[in-house]
Protein backbone atom coordinates (compact mmCIF):
# COMPACT_ATOMS: atom_id res chain seq x y z
CA UNK A 1 0.00 0.00 0.00
CA UNK A 2 1.24 3.48 -0.79
CA UNK A 3 0.46 6.71 1.00
CA UNK A 4 -0.95 9.38 -1.27
CA UNK A 5 -2.21 12.93 -1.25
CA UNK A 6 -5.56 13.56 -2.84
CA UNK A 7 -5.46 16.84 -4.72
CA UNK A 8 -8.22 18.93 -6.14
CA UNK A 9 -7.80 21.59 -8.80
CA UNK A 10 -10.11 24.46 -8.09
CA UNK A 11 -11.10 27.67 -9.80
CA UNK A 12 -12.82 30.29 -7.73
CA UNK A 13 -15.47 32.76 -8.77
CA UNK A 14 -12.96 35.62 -8.56
CA UNK A 15 -10.85 34.02 -11.29
CA UNK A 16 -8.14 32.53 -9.06
CA UNK A 17 -7.08 28.98 -9.68
CA UNK A 18 -5.34 26.65 -7.35
CA UNK A 19 -4.65 23.12 -6.27
CA UNK A 20 -5.60 21.91 -2.84
CA UNK A 21 -4.57 18.87 -0.89
CA UNK A 22 -7.96 17.62 0.22
CA UNK A 23 -6.98 14.53 2.06
CA UNK A 24 -4.26 12.08 2.78
CA UNK A 25 -4.68 8.38 2.83
CA UNK A 26 -3.86 5.06 1.33
CA UNK A 27 -3.93 4.39 -2.35
CA UNK A 28 -7.04 2.30 -2.22
CA UNK A 29 -6.54 0.77 -5.64
CA UNK A 30 -3.58 -1.16 -4.33
CA UNK A 31 -5.15 -2.18 -1.08
CA UNK A 32 -7.39 -4.96 -2.30
CA UNK A 33 -6.97 -7.90 -4.57
CA UNK A 34 -9.34 -8.00 -7.54
CA UNK A 35 -12.11 -10.54 -7.34
CA UNK A 36 -11.27 -13.58 -9.39
CA UNK A 37 -13.62 -14.23 -12.28
CA UNK A 38 -13.70 -17.03 -14.76
CA UNK A 39 -12.43 -15.66 -18.08
CA UNK A 40 -15.06 -14.98 -20.72
CA UNK A 41 -14.23 -16.51 -24.06
CA UNK A 42 -15.80 -15.54 -27.33
CA UNK A 43 -17.86 -18.46 -28.63
CA UNK A 44 -16.79 -17.81 -32.20
CA UNK A 45 -13.04 -17.36 -31.68
CA UNK A 46 -12.23 -18.67 -28.20
CA UNK A 47 -10.43 -15.38 -27.55
CA UNK A 48 -10.72 -13.70 -24.16
CA UNK A 49 -11.49 -10.03 -24.68
CA UNK A 50 -11.52 -7.38 -21.96
CA UNK A 51 -12.82 -3.88 -22.53
CA UNK A 52 -11.81 -1.11 -20.13
CA UNK A 53 -13.96 2.02 -20.04
CA UNK A 54 -13.09 3.33 -16.57
CA UNK A 55 -10.26 5.92 -16.42
CA UNK A 56 -9.39 5.26 -20.09
CA UNK A 57 -10.36 3.22 -23.15
CA UNK A 58 -8.43 0.00 -23.47
CA UNK A 59 -9.10 -3.21 -25.32
CA UNK A 60 -7.15 -6.37 -24.57
CA UNK A 61 -7.50 -9.66 -26.44
CA UNK A 62 -5.84 -12.71 -24.92
CA UNK A 63 -3.53 -10.45 -22.91
CA UNK A 64 -2.48 -8.29 -25.88
CA UNK A 65 -3.49 -4.65 -26.18
CA UNK A 66 -5.51 -3.97 -29.33
CA UNK A 67 -5.05 -0.56 -30.88
CA UNK A 68 -8.17 0.95 -32.43
CA UNK A 69 -8.69 4.27 -34.23
CA UNK A 70 -10.82 6.78 -32.33
CA UNK A 71 -13.83 6.34 -34.62
CA UNK A 72 -13.87 2.60 -33.86
CA UNK A 73 -13.33 3.18 -30.13
CA UNK A 74 -16.44 5.37 -30.09
CA UNK A 75 -18.54 2.65 -31.74
CA UNK A 76 -17.30 -0.01 -29.31
CA UNK A 77 -17.82 2.22 -26.25
CA UNK A 78 -21.29 3.32 -27.36
CA UNK A 79 -22.50 -0.22 -27.98
CA UNK A 80 -20.98 -1.39 -24.69
CA UNK A 81 -22.92 1.33 -22.87
CA UNK A 82 -26.20 0.41 -24.60
CA UNK A 83 -26.37 -3.03 -22.92
CA UNK A 84 -29.03 -4.19 -25.39
CA UNK A 85 -29.34 -4.55 -29.16
CA UNK A 86 -29.68 -1.22 -30.97
CA UNK A 87 -30.71 -0.42 -34.50
CA UNK A 88 -27.87 0.59 -36.77
CA UNK A 89 -29.62 3.84 -37.64
CA UNK A 90 -29.88 4.76 -33.95
CA UNK A 91 -26.20 4.03 -33.32
CA UNK A 92 -25.10 5.97 -36.41
CA UNK A 93 -27.38 8.89 -35.53
CA UNK A 94 -26.06 9.15 -31.97
CA UNK A 95 -22.40 8.84 -32.92
CA UNK A 96 -22.42 11.18 -35.93
CA UNK A 97 -24.98 13.75 -34.85
CA UNK A 98 -24.04 16.47 -37.33
CA UNK A 99 -23.58 14.14 -40.29
CA UNK A 100 -26.25 13.33 -42.90
CA UNK A 101 -27.88 9.94 -42.20
CA UNK A 102 -26.42 8.21 -45.23
CA UNK A 103 -22.90 9.40 -44.39
CA UNK A 104 -23.34 8.42 -40.73
CA UNK A 105 -24.42 4.90 -41.74
CA UNK A 106 -21.38 4.65 -44.03
CA UNK A 107 -19.09 5.75 -41.17
CA UNK A 108 -20.62 3.06 -38.97
CA UNK A 109 -20.17 0.35 -41.62
CA UNK A 110 -16.55 1.41 -42.05
CA UNK A 111 -15.90 1.26 -38.30
CA UNK A 112 -17.47 -2.21 -38.03
CA UNK A 113 -15.42 -3.43 -40.98
CA UNK A 114 -12.19 -2.18 -39.37
CA UNK A 115 -13.12 -3.94 -36.15
CA UNK A 116 -13.83 -7.27 -37.87
CA UNK A 117 -10.61 -6.98 -39.87
CA UNK A 118 -8.68 -7.00 -36.56
CA UNK A 119 -10.00 -10.50 -35.88
CA UNK A 120 -11.90 -9.59 -32.73
CA UNK A 121 -15.66 -9.95 -33.23
CA UNK A 122 -16.59 -7.66 -30.35
CA UNK A 123 -19.90 -6.72 -31.84
CA UNK A 124 -22.68 -9.02 -32.98
CA UNK A 125 -24.08 -7.43 -36.08
CA UNK A 126 -27.22 -8.32 -37.98
CA UNK A 127 -28.60 -6.48 -40.97
CA UNK A 128 -30.49 -4.14 -38.68
CA UNK A 129 -29.08 -4.38 -35.15
CA UNK A 130 -25.84 -4.22 -33.21
CA UNK A 131 -24.97 -5.67 -29.81
CA UNK A 132 -21.81 -6.22 -27.79
CA UNK A 133 -20.74 -9.86 -27.74
CA UNK A 134 -21.80 -11.07 -24.27
CA UNK A 135 -18.43 -12.79 -23.96
CA UNK A 136 -16.62 -9.43 -23.80
CA UNK A 137 -15.66 -8.51 -20.23
CA UNK A 138 -16.46 -4.85 -19.55
CA UNK A 139 -14.97 -3.30 -16.41
CA UNK A 140 -17.86 -0.83 -16.12
CA UNK A 141 -20.42 -3.64 -15.98
CA UNK A 142 -18.40 -5.39 -13.26
CA UNK A 143 -18.12 -2.15 -11.27
CA UNK A 144 -21.86 -1.56 -11.54
CA UNK A 145 -22.55 -5.05 -10.23
CA UNK A 146 -20.17 -4.43 -7.33
CA UNK A 147 -21.83 -1.08 -6.53
CA UNK A 148 -25.28 -2.66 -6.69
CA UNK A 149 -24.25 -5.36 -4.24
CA UNK A 150 -22.83 -2.70 -1.89
CA UNK A 151 -26.21 -0.96 -1.93
CA UNK A 152 -28.31 -4.08 -1.32
CA UNK A 153 -30.48 -3.79 1.77
CA UNK A 154 -29.27 -5.91 4.63
CA UNK A 155 -26.17 -7.16 2.85
CA UNK A 156 -22.98 -7.29 4.86
CA UNK A 157 -19.67 -6.14 3.38
CA UNK A 158 -17.95 -8.72 1.20
CA UNK A 159 -14.94 -10.50 2.63
CA UNK A 160 -12.72 -9.03 -0.08
CA UNK A 161 -13.85 -5.77 -1.61
CA UNK A 162 -12.53 -4.78 -5.04
CA UNK A 163 -12.24 -1.10 -4.34
CA UNK A 164 -10.25 -0.37 -7.48
CA UNK A 165 -13.41 -1.04 -9.49
CA UNK A 166 -15.09 1.92 -7.77
CA UNK A 167 -12.14 4.25 -8.09
CA UNK A 168 -12.49 5.72 -11.57
CA UNK A 169 -14.72 7.80 -13.82
CA UNK A 170 -16.12 6.56 -17.10
CA UNK A 171 -13.95 7.75 -20.02
CA UNK A 172 -13.02 11.00 -18.23
CA UNK A 173 -11.58 12.82 -21.25
CA UNK A 174 -14.48 12.08 -23.61
CA UNK A 175 -17.03 14.84 -24.18
CA UNK A 176 -19.77 13.12 -26.19
CA UNK A 177 -23.21 13.69 -24.68
CA UNK A 178 -23.91 9.98 -24.41
CA UNK A 179 -20.70 9.58 -22.39
CA UNK A 180 -21.38 12.60 -20.14
CA UNK A 181 -24.75 11.26 -19.04
CA UNK A 182 -23.48 7.74 -18.41
CA UNK A 183 -20.42 9.12 -16.60
CA UNK A 184 -22.56 11.10 -14.17
CA UNK A 185 -24.96 8.21 -13.63
CA UNK A 186 -22.10 5.86 -12.79
CA UNK A 187 -20.39 8.51 -10.65
CA UNK A 188 -23.51 8.87 -8.49
CA UNK A 189 -23.82 5.11 -8.21
CA UNK A 190 -20.22 4.65 -7.06
CA UNK A 191 -20.39 7.54 -4.57
CA UNK A 192 -23.49 6.02 -2.97
CA UNK A 193 -21.84 2.60 -2.99
CA UNK A 194 -18.68 3.95 -1.32
CA UNK A 195 -20.75 5.65 1.40
CA UNK A 196 -22.71 2.48 2.03
CA UNK A 197 -19.59 0.31 2.01
CA UNK A 198 -17.80 2.62 4.47
CA UNK A 199 -20.69 2.42 6.93
CA UNK A 200 -21.04 -1.35 6.64
CA UNK A 201 -17.32 -1.98 7.07
CA UNK A 202 -17.27 0.28 10.13
CA UNK A 203 -20.29 -1.52 11.63
CA UNK A 204 -18.50 -4.82 11.02
CA UNK A 205 -15.49 -3.52 12.95
CA UNK A 206 -13.28 -3.50 9.84
CA UNK A 207 -12.03 0.02 10.52
CA UNK A 208 -8.89 0.03 8.37
CA UNK A 209 -10.89 -0.98 5.29
CA UNK A 210 -13.66 1.47 6.20
CA UNK A 211 -11.07 4.27 6.27
CA UNK A 212 -9.74 3.31 2.86
CA UNK A 213 -13.25 3.30 1.40
CA UNK A 214 -14.01 6.60 3.12
CA UNK A 215 -10.88 8.21 1.71
CA UNK A 216 -11.87 6.98 -1.75
CA UNK A 217 -15.27 8.67 -1.31
CA UNK A 218 -13.61 11.91 -0.22
CA UNK A 219 -11.21 11.79 -3.16
CA UNK A 220 -14.14 11.33 -5.56
CA UNK A 221 -15.81 14.50 -4.26
CA UNK A 222 -13.81 16.38 -1.59
CA UNK A 223 -16.67 18.76 -0.74
CA UNK A 224 -19.27 16.13 0.21
CA UNK A 225 -19.66 16.50 3.93
CA UNK A 226 -21.30 13.09 4.32
CA UNK A 227 -18.06 11.40 3.23
CA UNK A 228 -15.99 13.40 5.73
CA UNK A 229 -18.51 12.68 8.48
CA UNK A 230 -18.23 8.97 7.76
CA UNK A 231 -14.44 9.20 8.18
CA UNK A 232 -14.82 11.07 11.48
CA UNK A 233 -17.23 8.38 12.71
CA UNK A 234 -14.78 5.60 11.78
CA UNK A 235 -11.90 7.33 13.60
CA UNK A 236 -14.11 7.73 16.67
CA UNK A 237 -15.22 4.10 16.51
CA UNK A 238 -11.56 3.14 16.48
CA UNK A 239 -10.99 5.31 19.54
CA UNK A 240 -8.73 7.61 17.54
CA UNK A 241 -10.02 11.03 18.61
CA UNK A 242 -6.96 12.91 17.34
CA UNK A 243 -7.52 11.62 13.78
CA UNK A 244 -11.23 12.43 14.04
CA UNK A 245 -10.34 16.01 14.95
CA UNK A 246 -7.75 16.20 12.17
CA UNK A 247 -10.33 15.06 9.60
CA UNK A 248 -12.86 17.57 10.94
CA UNK A 249 -10.32 20.41 10.73
CA UNK A 250 -9.32 19.41 7.22
CA UNK A 251 -12.95 19.59 6.11
CA UNK A 252 -13.57 22.87 7.92
CA UNK A 253 -10.52 24.43 6.19
CA UNK A 254 -11.62 23.05 2.83
CA UNK A 255 -15.17 24.43 2.88
CA UNK A 256 -14.01 27.70 4.41
CA UNK A 257 -11.40 28.31 1.72
CA UNK A 258 -13.34 27.00 -1.27
CA UNK A 259 -16.95 27.82 -0.41
CA UNK A 260 -16.72 30.39 2.37
CA UNK A 261 -18.99 28.34 4.64
CA UNK A 262 -18.78 26.42 7.91
CA UNK A 263 -19.39 22.70 8.54
CA UNK A 264 -23.00 21.79 9.29
CA UNK A 265 -24.42 21.33 12.77
CA UNK A 266 -24.33 17.55 12.20
CA UNK A 267 -20.58 17.66 11.67
CA UNK A 268 -20.06 19.92 14.70
CA UNK A 269 -22.18 17.57 16.82
CA UNK A 270 -19.92 14.66 15.90
CA UNK A 271 -16.86 16.19 17.49
CA UNK A 272 -18.60 17.75 20.47
CA UNK A 273 -17.87 15.76 23.56
CA UNK A 274 -14.40 14.72 22.45
CA UNK A 275 -11.94 15.15 25.27
CA UNK A 276 -10.87 18.80 25.54
CA UNK A 277 -7.20 17.80 25.69
CA UNK A 278 -7.53 16.32 22.21
CA UNK A 279 -9.32 19.32 20.71
CA UNK A 280 -6.63 21.59 22.14
CA UNK A 281 -4.03 19.72 20.06
Amino acid sequence: MKSAEFRSTVWFGNGERGERIVGKGLLVAAAFARQKRAPHLSASTGVRVKLTLLRTFELVGDGTAISLPMSVQRVVAFIALCRQPRHRAYVAGCLWLDTPEERAQANLRSALWRLRRGGYPLIRATASQLQLDPAVEVDLHEAEALAASALEDGAGPAADVDLAALDGDLLPDWYDEWVLLERERFRQLRLRALDSLCDRLARAGRHREALEVGHAAVAAEPLRESAHRALVRVHLAEGNAAEAIRQYRLFRKLVSEQLGIEPSARMEALIQGIDASVTAW
Binding site: S8, T9, V10, W11, G13, R17, L223, Q258, L259, G260
Partner: peptide
Protein backbone atom coordinates in the same frame (compact mmCIF):
# COMPACT_ATOMS: atom_id res chain seq x y z
CA UNK B 1 -8.29 22.06 -20.90
CA UNK B 2 -10.89 21.35 -18.23
CA UNK B 3 -11.14 23.72 -15.31
CA UNK B 4 -13.10 23.11 -12.13
CA UNK B 5 -14.98 25.58 -10.00
CA UNK B 6 -17.01 25.07 -6.85
CA UNK B 7 -20.00 26.94 -5.50
CA UNK B 8 -22.37 26.92 -2.52
Amino acid sequence: SPVEAVAA
